[in-house]
């Protein structure tokens, strides 16, 4: 009886070893491809202020000027990547929010001083803060 148990254990042990050696060989044959993990390109919101002598500034024109400035600075590739949009603009407070993403927010911040005028009105766009949520950006804008 004891002999039988020892035989069974030996057979199980040998089968396990054979399985492991085959598995290792098959893994060695497979080409090793490094697994790249891309961070998700999440949204970023830039709260900005407009300094100008004129109060009536058209939002569409301002967005157009921001996009043109970015394209002039870094080209169409970065314009498409960052895709800046003025999502909220409050003419009373002369401040607004630009929507962009994590990859391109630095490009947008760098391009803001290149916006010199909107509809021949001299303006200065001053970035105040960059946040990850629109709710917080709205809160900052109201402050």
């Amino acid at each position: 009886m004891l002999q039988l148990i020892i035989d069974i254990l030996l057979i199980v042990w040998l089968v396990t070893l054979t399985y492991l050696s085959f598995r290792r060989k098959s893994e060695e044959l497979k080409p090793k491809v490094p697994r790249l993990t891309l961070r998700k390109n999440k949204k970023r919101y830039i709260v900005f202020k407009v300094l100008s002598d004129h109060d009536d500034i058209n939002v569409q024109d301002m967005e157009k000027q921001i996009r043109m400035a970015l394209q002039e600075l870094l080209g169409k590739v970065w314009l498409d990547i960052s895709n800046p949009r003025v999502v909220i603009y409050d003419p009373g407070r002369m401040s607004g929010i630009i929507s962009t993403n994590r990859l391109g927010y630095k490009a947008v911040l760098a391009a803001l001083p290149f916006v010199k005028s909107v509809e021949d009105k001299e303006i200065l766009l001053v970035p105040v803060r960059t946040t990850g949520s629109l709710k917080k950006a709205k809160h900052l804008m109201r402050q």
Binding site: L51, S52, D53, L109, A110, L112, P113, K116, S117, E122, I123, L124, V126, P127
Partner: peptide, 11 residues
């Protein structure tokens, strides 16, 4: 003039 000013964050 005002449009030539650079904010520190932009710099």
């Amino acid at each position: 003039k005002i449009s030539e000013v650079w904010s520190p964050i932009s710099k």
